[in-house]
Structure formats: C-alpha cells, structure tokens
Design a protein around this nucleic acid. Structure first.
Length: 639
RNA sequence: GCCGCUUUAGCUCCAACCGGUAGAGCAGAUCCAUGGUAAGGAUAAGGUUGCUGGUUCGACUCCGGCAAGCGGCACCA
C-alpha cells in the first residue's frame, strides 16, 4: 500500500501501482469522469500511469486549462496514428497542442490534401472505437534511437537530448511516438475533434530545411464546446477585414496596381481622414510639432542611419538617378534626425517632439501579404522625441499616456505590454553594452514605478535600443502590436546630434521613437474586425442617410437636412432613388449606416426628423436641431 | 520566399455529364409600380471561363508555365 496525499491535506491509502484514474474513481465516480490527468509530486502524470510510492496528488479536471492542452496533445497522437495507417511511409516531426487545437508535422511521399482530411478523421474515429491504452515507457537514449531508426526527424531530436535525460515513448495500439507525455490514458477519451487544414511548415521552423506537411485540428471535451469553437471560426470569417472591406467599399487591391499596394476607396478614406485628424489634434495637445518629409531618400542617408546595413532585405532595391542612389524609405527616423540637426539646439529647447504622417515602403515577402494587414506601402503617424537623459522617463511616460488615450478612444483595449530587451547571444544588436544596460534599466524602472505589468521579451529589441510594445486584443481574440515606444542611443551618435548644455558644452540627446496606431492600413483592418464593419458614429464613412417618403413632396426638405448636416461637418447623404421605402431602409442597414432618417409630411411640417439607429428596430422623432446636437455630441465624445 | 489549394459576369455561388465555346441570385439598365422602416413586378443586356503554352477535329473541363488570392511556414527595423 502507498499513501496518497490529497490537495486538502488528507491522506489515503491505495494499492501500489494505482493510477490517477483509480484515485479519482475511489474518491468519487463523478470525479473519475472529470479527470484527465494529474500532477503527482508536481509532475504531470497520464491518467493511466501507475504510482508506485507515497505521493501527493493533484487531479487535473476538465475545467482546467491544462486539461484541454492534454486532450489536444493526445489528439495529435491520434492523428499521427491514423496518418501512419493510411500513409505507411509517413515519418513524423513534432505534434504539439496549441491554443484551441493541435497539429502534427508529417512527411509523406504522397501529399496530403484538404480533401483527404475526412478520410483521416474517419480513421481517427475508428481508433477511438478501439479504445487503445496510451502506454508510457521509459527508455534510454540508445534504445530510443533504435526504436525510431526509421524516423529521421525523431532521431534528430533524440540525438540532441542529454544522455541522462528521461526519454519516454507512448504506445497506443500499433503506434508509438516519442513524447514527453501528459496524456488522457486511452484513445477512447478523445471524442470531439475535427481536422481543420493542411499547410506547409519548415522542419524546426528553419526555412533552409525540409518542408513538412502540417495538419491542424482541434479537440474538445464536449460536442458543444467543439461546435462553439467551430462557430467562432465561422464568425472570424464573417468579421474578416478583407471581406468587410470589400462589402463596405473600404479598400481594394488590384494586380495591375501592384501586389500589397492597397487603394483606399471613398468610404475607407473618410474613416482614415477622421483618424488622421483625430491623431493630429491629440498630438498637438501633447506638444508634438508636425513636419512632412520625402518618401524618397538617398542611400547615403540610410547608410548613415545604419538601416542599409541592417535591414536592406526589407527595402525595395535602390534606384540610380543623376549620379545619386535613391531608396524608397522604409522609415522616417533619418529624416527627423536631419530636421533636428538643422540648427544648434539648447538644453532649453528639449524635449522636441516631431510627428509626421509618414508613407513608407517595405519589401515584404509575397507570402506575408494579407489584405490591409501586411502591405508593401503603408502610412502611419510616426514620431521622434529628442530629449535629454534626465527627460527620458517623463517623455516615455507621456508617450505611453498618449498611447493609452488613443487606444481607448478608438474603442480598443490594451491586452498587455511587452518590454523588448536585447539578447547578447544574438549579436544583431549594436554593441555598446553600457548604453544598453542604462536604457533597459530605465524602461524597467519606469514600468515598475507606474505599476504597469509587462512581459519581458528577450532578444526582441530593435537593433538600436530596447522598446516597449503595446499589444491590443481584437474582438476576435487576435493580439496585435499597436503602439511602440523605443529608446535609441545609436541614431544620435550616427547623426552626431548635439545640444548645448547649461555648462556650455555639447551633449548627446536621446531619441525616442514612438509609433501610435501601427499603420492606417493595419488599424483599419483591426477596426473593421472590432466593429464588424459597423463603425461608431464618429468614424462611420456615412453617418446619416436621409430618405424621403415621397420624392416630390419630401425631397426638398430631405435635401435641406442633408445640406445642413454637411454644413455641420457631418457625413450625410440622401437616397433619392425611385425605390420603395422598405428597400432603401434595408440598404441603409446593410451598409451599416449609423442613422437612417425617414422624411415625410410629419417631419416637413414640424421641422423634425425621424431616425432609426443602426441595428435597432424602433424609431424616434425629434426636432432637427435636437438631432443635430445629439449626433454632434456623439462625434465629439467619439461614440 | 517556401508548401498546398483556389481562380468562371461588377459582387456572391458545391450551375455545366465521361472534353462538344456557359447557369443562377444580387447589383447595374429600361419600363410599370412605389406615402412611413429589412428586398414590388416585367423586360433586355451582361462572359475570349485569371494570363499563357500544349494535347485534341474540338478545352471551363486534360497536361505544363506564369500571376494573383487563400491556409500555413519563414520573415516582420
């Protein structure tokens, strides 16, 4: 007998060799059904792994996050087993659980196509019926190498393991897999799953190595959960900015115009202009000065900044013209350095904050392009702050505050903050360790003082300095880098920036790069997704549409309302087509226009409007002036 | 860039047998109808089936190349 200590502190005796499943069952039959695996002395145990000594145990029940991970991991094995049956020559890479699912990387002679997934799925269900135990076995390195001699990818992994590492093999039916484990014990527990897609994936994520076929799937504990997840996938498609952007005529792409070079249509531009104006005002309030610099620059400029050496791959190829070599700018910092340097600066002048709506070009890989999310020409509001060292903290903080304000005004929420630091080992960072240490320490200090939580991202810094990235979570649970504040001690050196200090000596200012809204392109994709195309009134391309009940009788009044609204700086239109009222209302709704006005006798007589708000069924009749002040207030409040 | 899939009217679509030059809905056009909140009716029109080579008497259909899009991987200053 062995003693098992439960989380509540009680101990209970069990037969030697009992399993988490056995223990759960002994405690309560209902618990057995809910248990997926367990921590035994803090180590992850499969549901069916024998426990041979006294131990403390913590059962992992289905309601815990790890439980789903374990299930999905087991589902990956199930997938591999089915594939091996159908494609006997298959060899395997890795097959982990991921968020909401799992995948397995597979090499086969025959390519697996999407249409083959149902067949594989069927085989998986057959294996579930077979109720195979998932048996764990410990082997040493030599044994492991022997067992997987036919699996070159597994062999590679085994070879890299330490000689004394505990290597485990999981076997279910005729199938065995190299695996660290944490499994549901028996294939019968994997009931609700679906294979989703096949895609290529480089072995070990290395583009110089083999490309394997990756099958993605998802597994859940109940049919309901599975269906819910499939619904979410569907909803994601519905909210896809590429679909909405087309439907609502926000932007277009055209082969002839160029790959990754989106064209903003009238509706899209109306939204973008509103955003640009908003940011301009916000920046003015925060003491920024706006400038405008060229899209083309000399190669020399980027040699000075260091971009040419470090990031040439991301730039369009240079062009020769009149003995000069020009490049399309990938970013605006060098220009801003030049603006700073145009005259002698005093310590009293600092901080100087330059902001610009910058159009820049990056040569993104063709496979990376996607709607407005990844493009080759992008426009953003970029800014560089020139500060004394003693001003760094307050400037970073003020930039952060501005970022917070903008994100909340746009109806988005900050998910978390990343503090990106260098990684000495990587060697892609500029070499001055003293500066790095100082800059990194400063940012940490600031975040700690302001009690801002952050994730440290080692090795993710820019080549010129550490940065704070602000991550936003969209309505569909995607996390996107929205804003960034980056310290830069390098560019001031390269451009020899100085200011005259109190002491009459020359000093080096610090540059702070501040990105606010990612790019207009990406922001638009996020907002489309966030609002499902139904923009809040202040952003909506068309805010009001006036529809007369009868063209002749009510047209002139509708027209006068429209003019009045436009005078008030609102985006209003009329619908004078010879169609029935219901038809026009329907269209105003499908175009997601915030306010549809119906204008009839009643309204003409009382100088009023009857409006219907997008997504609502009821109508309200109010005096025209009241309507105007209501909607203007909404715009002002950014609703 | 890499792997796989896809591409038919302005848009959307699992229309088109085993190879015989194409079918629908919506939008747009014309005519009729239209006074109160999610599609009124009729008619006509609309296509070198992404581009390009090949096989064939004949290609939307089969084979090759290219391009773009999509799902991923890699990349993302």
């Amino acid at each position: 007998m062995i003693e098992i200590r439960l989380p509540d502190g009680n101990t209970k005796a069990f037969e030697k060799g009992t399993t988490p499943e056995g223990i759960a069952g002994a405690l309560a039959p209902a618990l057995k059904k809910k248990t997926v695996a367990a921590y035994v002395n803090g180590n992850l145990y499969d549901l069916n792994r024998p426990i041979n000594d006294d131990a403390s145990i913590e059962l992992i029940t289905k309601d815990r996050e790890e439980a789903l991970e374990i299930l999905n991991h087991s589902a990956a094995h199930l997938l591999a087993q089915a594939v091996k049956r159908l494609y006997p020559d298959a060899t395997f890479g890795v097959g982990p659980a991921i968020k909401d699912g799992f995948y397995y990387d597979i090499a086969t002679k025959e390519t697996i196509k999407e249409e083959d997934l149902p067949t594989i799925e069927k085989e998986m269900r057959k294996i579930v019926q077979e109720q195979d135990q998932m048996e764990r076995r410990v082997v040493d390195k030599a044994e492991a190498l022997k067992e997987f001699s036919g699996d070159p990818y597994k062999v590679e992994m085994i070879k890299e393991m330490d000689d004394d590492e505990v290597i485990t093999i999981y076997k279910q039916g005729e199938f065995k897999d190299l695996c660290r484990g944490g499994h549901v014990g028996n294939t019968k527990h994997i009931k609700h799953f679906k294979l989703l897609s096949v895609a290529g994936a480089y072995w070990r994520g290395d583009s110089d190595r083999d490309m394997l076929q990756r099958i993605y799937g998802t597994a859940w504990f109940t049919k309901d959960d599975l269906n819910k997840y499939l619904e979410i996938l569907k909803e994601r498609k519905e909210r896809d900015h590429r679909k909405l952007g087309k439907e609502l005529e926000i932007f277009m792409l055209d082969n002839k115009a160029g790959q990754g070079l989106p064209i903003w249509l009238p509706n899209g531009y109306a939204v973008r202009k509103t955003l640009e104006d908003y940011v301009y005002k916000l920046e003015r309030k925060h003491g920024y000065l706006h400038i405008q610099t060229p899209v083309l620059g000399t190669k020399e400029l980027y040699e000075t900044s260091g971009h040419w050496d470090h990031y040439r791959d991301g730039m369009f190829p240079p062009m020769e013209y009149e003995d000069q070599t020009y490049v399309l700018r990938p970013m605006s910092c060098p220009h801003h350095m030049i603006v700073y340097n145009r005259k002698l600066r005093s310590y009293r002048d600092l901080p100087i904050r330059y902001a610009e709506i910058v159009t820049q070009h990056r040569h993104e890989a063709s496979g990376a392009l996607s709607g407005l999310e990844r493009v080759r020409q992008m426009t953003l509001t970029d800014s560089h702050i020139f500060a004394r060292r003693d001003q760094i903290k307050s400037e970073v903080l003020s930039a952060y505050n501005l970022i917070q304000q903008a994100i909340s005004d746009l109806g988005l929420t900050i998910d978390y903050i990343e503090l990106a630091l260098r990684d000495e080992a990587k060697g892609k960072f500029h070499p001055d360790d003293v500066l790095w240490d100082e800059a990194e320490a400063l940012l940490k200090e600031l975040l700690d003082e302001e009690k801002i939580d952050y994730k440290v991202m080692k090795g993710e810094a820019a080549f010129y300095g550490p940065k704070i990235d602000v991550q936003v979570r969209t309505a569909m649970d995607r996390v996107i880098t929205m804003s960034t504040v980056q310290l830069d001690f390098l560019l001031p050196e390269r451009f020899d920036l100085t200011y005259i200090g109190k002491d009459g000596e020359k000093h080096r200012p610090v540059v702070i790069h501040r990105g606010l809204i990612s790019t207009w392109e990406r922001l638009m994709s996020i907002l489309l997704e966030q609002y499902k195309g139904a923009f809040p009134t202040w952003l909506a391309p068309e805010q009001v549409r006036a529809i007369p009940v009868n063209l002749e009788a009510h047209g002139p009044y509708a027209e006068s309302i429209n003019n009045r609204l436009i005078d008030e700086d609102l985006r209003s239109t009329t619908d004078f087509r010879e169609e029935k009222l219901g038809y026009k209302i329907r269209e105003a709704q499908t175009k997601k226009i915030p306010y549809s006005l119906v204008i009839g006798d009643n309204e003409v007589e009382n100088n009023s409007v009857t409006y219907r708000k997008y997504g609502e069924k009821e109508q309200n009749t109010v005096p025209l002036e009241d309507f105007i002040s209501m909607i203007k207030k909404e715009v002002k409040d950014r609703k």
